[in-house]
Amino acid sequence: MYTAEFTTDCSILKDALRAAPTMRVEHVDDRMVRDGPIKLLFWANGGEFDAFERGLDEDPTVADVRTLTVEETRRLYRVNYTARGECESFTTLITDLDGTFVDGVVTADQVWMRIRFPDHEAVRAFADWFRKRDRTFTLDALYEETTSAETAASDLTDSQRQALALSHERGYFEIPRGTTGAELDVSQQALSERLRRGISTSLERAGLPAQD
């Protein structure tokens, strides 16, 4: 399994985002409906909502705009892709490649997304789709998920596993820090060493070697 992070040019919602240039769209879900248009759900925040909604009404890639939730700083929308929107969207491509959407943010300048693919060939086919259409495509990160969390945890010593578990449980990683080494019945130096080695082992097993 491979996880790819990439950026590309904005096509879906381009006109709406131009109408509210500081708006930030956070992808929630694409829903493919049998014999119907693809539905897109997303949060929008950081811009002028009235301008953005006027832009949505004029945007040629979406239709049937519906506001689902209104909060103080963000709103949840549901739109349907138009025929043009479906042509420019890569939702169907992800489905065809057995990919899984993980996260995504759209701004007036670009689209950033994280997608999980079953193999390297699917990643290559995904990138080729953009190149064949002369669309920008930058692969920001690609890593292989080779082990499960259970496998990674099995490589830790008992003291490393206990230090990580207790530190997480008692707020050691929170800001501000919720506990100290003394509260975990070890010295600060010993705790730091166990955490460093435990985190380093977990990263290496996940295919992300820690940098010295």
Score class of each variant (00 low, 15 high):
P118N: 00
V102Q: 15
V106W: 07
L203H: 10
S187D: 11
F173P: 01
P21R: 02
V106A: 07
A19W: 05
L13F: 07
V33Y: 04
S159H: 03
E150W: 08
D103F: 01
S167D: 09
E71G: 13
N45D: 15
R197I: 09
L208V: 12
A122Y: 05
V106G: 03
C87S: 14
Q189T: 13
E121L: 13
R34K: 13
T157P: 03
T73I: 11
E26K: 13
T95P: 03
E72G: 09
T180C: 04
E169T: 13
R18E: 13
G207L: 01
L142E: 00
K39W: 11
L164G: 05
F101L: 06
Y143P: 00
D64S: 13
W43C: 01
A165Y: 12
E145Y: 03
Y77Q: 09
R194E: 12
P37C: 01
D30P: 05
T3G: 08
G46R: 08
D134H: 15
D98W: 13
P118E: 02
E174W: 12
D134C: 13
S202N: 07
P21I: 01
R24D: 07
T3K: 14
V62K: 02
F126S: 01
A19Q: 02
G47H: 04
A182I: 02
T69N: 13
Q189G: 04
Q189P: 14
I38Q: 10
G171K: 04
I94T: 02
D57G: 07
A16C: 03
D158N: 11
L17R: 02
A149L: 12
A163S: 09
E204S: 14
R194Y: 13
M1N: 00
F101Y: 12
I115S: 01
S200K: 14
D15V: 10
L41P: 00
Y77M: 09
I115L: 10
L93Y: 00
S89E: 04
L195K: 04
A122E: 01
L40K: 12
T8Q: 07
L76W: 06
